[in-house]
Write a protein that binds this DNA or RNA. Sequence first.
DNA 1: TTCGTCGTGCAACTTTGTTGCATTGCCCGT
DNA 2: ACGGGCAATGCAACAAAGTTGCACGACGAA
Lengths: 167, 167
Amino acid sequence: MDELPTTPEAANHASTETVLKRAGIDPTPLRLAVIQVLAREGRALPAGDILALVQDQHRANKVTLYRILDLFVEKGLARRHSSGDRALRYCLEPGSAGRPHCHAYCLRCGRMECLPGVEGVVDMAALGPALAMEVVAVEVRIDGVCAACRRKPSVPETPVDAGSGNS
Amino acid sequence: MDELPTTPEAANHASTETVLKRAGIDPTPLRLAVIQVLAREGRALPAGDILALVQDQHRANKVTLYRILDLFVEKGLARRHSSGDRALRYCLEPGSAGRPHCHAYCLRCGRMECLPGVEGVVDMAALGPALAMEVVAVEVRIDGVCAACRRKPSVPETPVDAGSGNS
DNA sequence: TTCGTCGTGCAACTTTGTTGCATTGCCCGT
DNA sequence: ACGGGCAATGCAACAAAGTTGCACGACGAA
């Protein structure tokens, strides 16, 4: 299947090329590299990280990367999300199109994992009355400390906001 | 009452000064101006907007503003949120401390309104299995077009991201 | 061939936020 | 009153993320 699975073995040239073509995107080497990085990582990455990973194989410019990411977002292949830090993050739409998903952001290591879809998680009716809005998207982000980081000796590394001089 | 109500008439000097003191913050003129702007607006504002509003009354420097906002966040008076655009936004904790709330972000005019608390809106259990995380905060943002903007003739001004929606 | 378009690159720029350091004013102990 | 220290603020320079303008090469169509 070429439904953009995010498992590593699926991040091969053939399937990603098909995905690009079906989205109406010319599958250039750089675009293939970008989508393969996104598929391989399977989580929301800041553009800088994507660039670094792509540059492992290709000479690539950040402007071109931003343009490719914009194109992916515009064509519905990828999604742009805000994390707790300053950089926007990009991830593939896992599974079929248009199904938004939540994210888990680790305040300590900065990883942002994709979680299942937002349906059944957010009760839109619960905020319906206050929400006289035509809803386009729902962004849900869980901030916390991931399992891997909790196992670590908890070095206070001031990831986003922590100990900036308490009192 | 000095519980940080966000109604305009409550954004007076006396109540905000009390709020600051009770949070252990020395109520300087600038800090009072900042918290009064936040209380008066009652929504999540980017630092740039806050600075502009504060500067209507005070000479103020952006560095000082950022430090004041950091202090408010650290003391639990205000919250920092990411909007669809690049700037972080700040709003007061409406009501009592520690109760997080959702936001509605208008893609057209950029206003970000505060909505009721997140309890009852996000079903944490629904993503519990996938979430081996110590949860620190939950950020919920509804992106869409607010009622006021829908009534307008809909100038296509591509404010942040428009067409990035569902497929 | 020539033209136009597309993909990419480079440099310069903008926006947002941060850091380092100086200045001011207040409190406190003497 | 005096002087030291500290908290609050300001200024300038910096830093990171992202954007804009323009150039250049490849490639297909006329």
